[in-house]
Amino acid sequence: MRPSATARPETPGQTVLSPMLQRLAAERATGALTRDHGILYLADGQVVHAESPATPGIDVLLTTGGALRGDGWWDAVAQAGAGQRVGRYLVDSGRIPGGALELCHLGALYDAAFFALAPTSAPARFRYGVRHWIGPVRPVPVDAVQRETLRRRELLDRIWPDARTDSAPLAPTAGPVDTPVPPRQRRVLDLVDGVRTATDIAQELGRSAFHILVDLRRLAAAGLVETIRPASSGTGRPAGRIDFPEVTADPDVALLRRLRDALEAL
């Protein structure tokens, strides 16, 4: 008996979010697929890593909670980044247990993939041969990633069918808060200040942005948070134009810098 990341029989064609990704999986490609809202890294046609400006990177997740010290992370990047084995180095040097790295990395991978696979009209680009410096941790089949991304969209819509909480600045509602709020949602609610978006809150807490989306939709469903509406018309905006919120309305500069450094190091 072998454990597996996914055990459902494959149902090709049903859950294709990106035909290009599907084709790359079929040809067992290795490289980086850049889409509007994130990057998926493939090795032999499997997803080995994903990054998106909408969600904290694995370094933020590991260092914010204290699982890893910041200097420990940078030391690992310095020692093993060029060899593209940062993950393995973190475990072998005793900085982080193997199971903890797998849990954190898988969470970050599905999280970033959810944003990277968001609907977009911009063309995707694939660079063959590109590998991520984190190195192999626990590869996931493309089908599993696509299926999970669809399931997550449905989950969010079941909780609260208004996607604006995912990307717009949020404010607490004026009403008195007498509903009990679970501790994890409370920490999110405490950061809702009329300015921050879901991505900002995720960065601050060092939590997966998808988890924040789930909590925010629950808080919105409970009537505790609402989106800030953009300033009303009369500001020169053409009448009748509808603005769709962007997932990365305010890209995190530090993350983009880190992405650039990582790409340059390849």
Binding site: S4, A5, T6, A7, L103, S208, F210
Partner: peptide, 23 residues
């Protein structure tokens, strides 16, 4: 199975599942 309870994601599974579908 190893499961994330916020998202409902199966991070790893083994053996049978009661309804034949680990996810």
């Amino acid at each position: 199975a190893v499961v994330d309870w916020t998202s409902g994601l199966a991070l790893g599974t083994i053996g049978e599942s009661p309804n034949g579908d680990h996810e």
